[in-house]
Amino acid sequence: MYNFKYQRASSLDDASKAAAAAEDAEYMAGGMTLIPTMKQRLAQPSDLIDLGGIASLSGIRRDGDALAIGAMTRHAEVASSEEVKSAIPALAALAAHIGDPQVRNRGTLGGSIANADPAADYPAALVGLNATVKTDRREIAADEFFTGLFETALEEHEIITEVRFPIPEKAAYVKFPNPASRYAVVGVMVCQAKDGVRVAVTGAGPSVFRVDAMEKALATKLSPQAVEGIKVPEDGLNTDIHASAEYRAHLVTVMAKRAVAAAIG
């Protein structure tokens, strides 16, 4: 890895000032993607600003009819939180199957969504559960947050502080995990809330997306049969050594069906 200047920020203000003063700063949350990327010399920040020392960015709390989870909250904390398990069990289960235990002990919610890996699990949770991303500058609806392959609506040096997940009536996330990395080859979050049904798909395309036809069918009847005949077009889906676009399109239907079954189960 190329060398850099390391700074541990003690507050949000401290972090943004350090980033503004640096030539080419990068924020580090859990570092589970950033450190491997730097080791491969695919990233070369002049300054690495560690957000790990900002206590206010961590924690899980009930906020009215939603759960508010701090950006630096580790996957292991979300997975084991009694608050999350009782309010949104699908979210705790999703966090419990990211990577491996050591990755979950370091990796964070904010880091995962800022990175916006097409195969990450959290984007499906944010879009499926109709979450809101809070930053040091504004609030961004999950539907507007993920804009493309490793691309988000975040501006330069903007810091995610919290994600607010409305508590759904029913929800479940099912993924077909890559057998080596446990990233989602395809993962589907199905959610029924007061304002309707949402189906969010990660892993299949360059970025998380919703399946309108499935949402409409499930709004009429929340049953696995409602989605079994609905196929997403394979155009634009990912093809790699793990799965072809055609296979991913097939998996979207299969995972959606299983997610609905789990949600009503």
Binding site: M32, P36, K39, L48, D50, Q102, V103, N105, R106
Partner: peptide, 27 residues
Amino acid sequence: CDTSQCGACVVHVNDRSVKSCTMLASQ
């Protein structure tokens, strides 16, 4: 492996297991 997959480098930091090939000494 030096790529946070194999776990030969697991140590505990503040009582949690981590892969020490994927943490900086500064942290």
